[in-house]
């Protein structure tokens, strides 16, 4: 067994520097690597390019990095829940690249899988396709999208073992699996870290080969963005 465990979030984030590109898992506030984000705020790294489906809310998730103006460029599919984000974008302080959600996921997966680029119909005929190579397949136009290049992938899983194997829970899975192994170094924070051999190999979602560093998060707030209930 190759042991991927590191002692804490600080050790996991070793080597993250100003100007780097980070890929961060999560959909809204669900399944975000919240311990790592908190530590990035403390470390104070700046001029980051962040690839993540959303940009958090004003006071949680990537919104915390935005507040401290640590993000130079954001690559996301939907950023509608964050007033500070909108302010920085409209004022030109923050560079933003909006990408269709499926394209974003596939650009991560392509990086993980060693596929440099792929064609997708998403965005054809829109400003997303401007300046990109297009090609017709079976009578329909497609746009060439490239794999992302990131220095670090930072993901969150439910359970993990010392070997870096990961299991996700519910819709907190989202972008996390496709980002594993997509960046040069993959950091996984988990709610529960168990010894190798404790997890059933049949149930592993992401094999440890895609993970370089794993640690158990000290505390998970797991904030709910839109608490919606029905009455009994």
């Amino acid at each position: 067994m190759i042991n991927k465990e590191v002692r804490n979030v600080a050790a996991a984030l070793e080597g993250v520097e100003d100007g780097m590109t980070l890929m961060l898992g999560g959909f809204g506030l669900c399944g975000i690597p919240e311990n790592s984000i908190g530590a990035l705020v403390e470390i104070g790294v700046k001029n980051l390019t962040c690839i993540s489906n959303n940009a958090g809310v004003d006071d949680f998730g990537l919104g915390l990095l935005l507040q401290k103006k640590q993000i130079k460029k954001m690559i996301a599919s939907y950023v509608g829940e964050n007033a500070e984000f909108e302010r920085q974008m409209l004022s030109g302080e923050l560079e933003v690249e909006l990408t269709p959600q499926g394209t974003l996921a596939e650009r991560c997966r392509a990086a993980q899988a060693g596929i440099p680029a792929f064609y997708t119909p998403a965005g054809c005929g829109t400003e997303v396709a401007e300046g990109k190579e297009t090609r017709e397949f079976k009578g329909k136009m497609h746009v060439l999208e490239t794999a992302y290049e990131a220095d670090f992938s930072i993901v969150k899983a439910w359970k993990g073992d010392e070997a870096g194997n990961l299991i996700f829970k519910g819709t907190a899975r989202n972008f996390n699996p496709a980002m594993c192994g997509a960046g040069k170094i993959t950091i996984a924070e988990v709610e529960e870290l168990v010894p190798a051999g404790s997890l059933d190999p049949n149930q592993i979602h992401i094999p440890g080969i895609f993970v370089n560093r794993i640690f158990q998060g000290a505390k998970f707030e797991k904030r709910i963005e839109q608490r919606t209930v029905r009455s009994k």
């Binding site: 959909f27 809204g28 506030l29 669900c30 399944g31 489906n53 829940e81 959600q101 499926g102 974003l104 996921a105 596939e106 991560c108 997966r109 439910w158 996700f168 829970k169 519910g170 819709t171 907190a172 899975r173 989202n174 972008f175 996390n176 699996p177 496709a178 979602h205 797991k222 904030r223 709910i224 963005e225 839109q226 608490r227 919606t228 209930v229």
Partner: peptide
């Protein structure tokens, strides 16, 4: 409510018998 179970509008949801979870690449 379960923080790990939301829809695309970020609202808390439940699942029906026969439901499945998958990652974003599979979803698309």
């Amino acid at each position: 409510e379960d923080a790990d179970l939301i829809n695309a509008g970020k609202q808390t949801i439940t699942t029906m018998p026969g439901a499945s979870f998958f990652d974003s690449a599979v979803s698309f």
